[in-house]
């Protein structure tokens, strides 16, 4: 499969070849594919989403069974030993981590990191106030809060992520801009609208129907939009 340029760029200056890697928040396996393509000796693809675990298994792990382990697990308690990982990637992970989970996840990264471990965090800056897609993300968050008591998306500024990990003992290495602007395509807009509709369906009928109708309206009104910035920050844990 094709490794997205965001992933290959974020990994290009990291010593992936021969390394034991953790893809935290594996999504559909794009970064696992990037790590394997860059010569990782082993990749643990961890996700708490059963559908994502299946997608990674089918798209990536099946072709590389000896080098890939797909783990369906909670990032707040990783099923990995202390000091066992040489590269950790969090590509598009933090925006789906609610603030109350940050501390536990950061703690687990530090626990599994071996001395000299590299960490790459790729995510989105908060969107500018005039971005049309903000309204869709607001609806996604509102439905998520109402349905399960936590937001769906939180965009942490690069500076905040940097301070978070430096404060936990990591050494800042570099920050790059991966995408500027970020292309929110029709597929992305539809996928986010689907998330909002899915949460809306769990709400009382009258409220849920109204919010689902809002998702329909926003999907059509926004279409696609190129806006915002995606960053890549690299850290290293002291030897």
């Amino acid at each position: 499969m094709d490794v997205p340029t965001t992933v290959s760029t974020a990994l290009e200056d990291r010593p992936v070849s021969g390394a034991v890697c953790l893809e935290a928040g594996a999504g559909v396996g794009n970064t696992t594919a990037g790590l394997l393509a860059a010569g990782a000796s082993r990749v643990y693809a961890v996700t708490n989403d059963a559908a994502h675990a299946k997608a990674v298994s089918e798209r990536v792990a099946r072709a590389e069974p000896d080098r890939t382990a797909v783990l369906e697990a909670d990032l707040r308690s990783l099923p990995l030993a202390d000091d066992s990982v040489e590269i950790i990637t969090a590509h598009g992970l933090f925006n789906v981590l609610p603030p109350e989970s940050l501390d536990a996840v950061v703690g687990e990264f530090r626990r599994v990191a071996s001395p000299g471990c590299h960490l790459v965090v790729d995510d989105y800056e908060p969107l500018p106030s005039d971005a049309a897609i903000r309204e869709l993300f607001a609806l996604e968050n509102a439905t998520s809060e109402l349905a399960r008591g936590r937001p769906a998306l939180t965009f942490y500024p690069a500076d905040v992520v940097r301070r978070l990990f430096v404060g936990d003992g990591w050494t800042f290495d570099r920050e790059w801009t991966l995408l500027d602007p970020v292309p929110w395509t029709e597929n992305h807009v539809r996928a986010h609208a689907n998330v909002a509709r899915s949460f809306a369906s769990k709400l009382p009928d009258e409220l849920g129907d109204q919010l689902a109708a809002d998702a329909d309206r926003l999907e059509t009104a926004i279409g696609s939009e190129s806006v915002g910035e995606m960053y890549s920050i690299a850290f290293q844990y002291p030897e």
């Binding site: 798209r59 925006n95 789906v96 500027d180 292309p183 597929n187 996928a191 689907n194």
Partner: peptide, 25 residues
Amino acid sequence: DESAQRSLVEKLRHDESPVPEQLHH
């Protein structure tokens, strides 16, 4: 800018992506 070049590559990759339902880039 390289970030704008990648932005264009990503936009077109998602336009024709065989994998549905991607929230991220």
